[in-house]
């Protein structure tokens, strides 16, 4: 494996996103949403203004859980199939670069663009809020930012995987939307339905483990378990065994969600 080749591909992907202002646009969206939520999140309760970091993070989590998977899937769905459809893939593959290096370079470049947007977008808000936050609150906020980056990486990995499998861009975009619906909307409903139907019967203790099969849920658990006030806001928290809620373990599951689709993509793309 040649790092130089991977870095060249990754560098091009990153600079492309920087130059066409994708990074700027996404960062601005994150900043705007985060500021609005921080200051107006409690407007329903008749209050305006920043209240607490915990409530802010809880609101941000429920927003980011929709937004980041969508952005990541849109960013990566045509990584390979787009090159193939445009006709530029053959030229790349005839160069002294392996298919794995090309795939990894694409992923890393896109991941860097997404991570950069996320960190800059939410980081700006941290600067704005810095005076009103103590060290503990900042720690929580940085935890939220870090897990947001991981969430993006996981869905980007899924996107790159389907970009290898899809026959054309149209199908790839359809699959990306389907994947988003499944993980962000349908998965939890199915799980809740199963929980309600199955009640407290045999096997119900396995349900919490099934949450690990969805990177969006892993993200949610990562964030709500670090905040005592917030835990009570979510029903899920009460059914989730604390033993599973170790941040290092959830982080490991997230890394698995990043690695596994990439491994499958590399296997499929090898020929």
């Amino acid at each position: 494996m040649e790092i130089r080749q991977i870095a060249t591909i990754a560098g091009k992907e990153f600079w492309d996103r920087l130059r066409n202002r994708w990074v700027l646009a996404v960062a601005l969206v994150f900043t705007a949403f985060a500021l609005v939520i921080a200051y107006f999140g409690a407007a329903q309760q008749g209050a305006v203004g920043f209240r607490s970091i915990e409530v802010t993070i809880a609101s941000l989590v429920s927003l980011v859980i929709y937004l980041i998977p969508l952005i990541a899937l849109m960013l990566g769905f045509d990584a390979i199939v787009g090159e193939r459809e445009r006709g530029s893939l053959d030229l790349l593959l005839a160069l002294p670069i392996t298919r794995f290096e090309l795939l990894l370079g694409k992923y890393l470049g896109l991941a860097a663009a997404l991570a950069f947007s996320t960190v800059v977008g939410f980081g700006l808000v941290a600067l704005v809020l810095a005076r009103q936050l103590d060290v503990g609150a900042l720690f929580h906020y940085f935890g939220f930012m870090g897990s947001s980056v991981l969430l993006g990486m996981a869905f980007l990995s899924l996107a790159v995987m389907l970009s290898v499998f899809a026959a054309d861009r149209t199908r790839a975009s359809g699959l990306a939307i389907a994947l988003w619906f499944f993980f962000v909307l349908v998965f939890d409903l199915l799980l809740l339905g199963a929980l309600v139907l199955g009640g407290d019967g045999y096997g119900s203790e396995f349900y919490p483990y099934l949450l690990l099969a969805n990177p969006a849920d892993v993200f949610r658990i990562l964030n709500i378990f670090s905040l005592d006030d917030v835990r009570t806001l979510y029903g899920l928290a009460t059914v989730f065994p604390p033993a599973l809620a170790q941040p290092w373990m959830l982080g490991g599951v997230m890394l698995g969600w990043i690695a596994l689709p990439l491994v499958i993509a590399a296997w499929r793309f090898r020929k």
Binding site: D16, R19, N20, R86, G87, S88, D90, L91, A94, L95, P96, T98
Partner: peptide, 20 residues
């Protein structure tokens, strides 16, 4: 083969490059 490829140039039919 990678080393051999370094000495190979390829111009595909209807070459597609990067517009940006």
């Amino acid at each position: 083969f990678r080393a051999a490829r370094r000495a190979v140039g390829y111009l595909p039919e209807n070459v597609v490059l990067y517009d940006n």
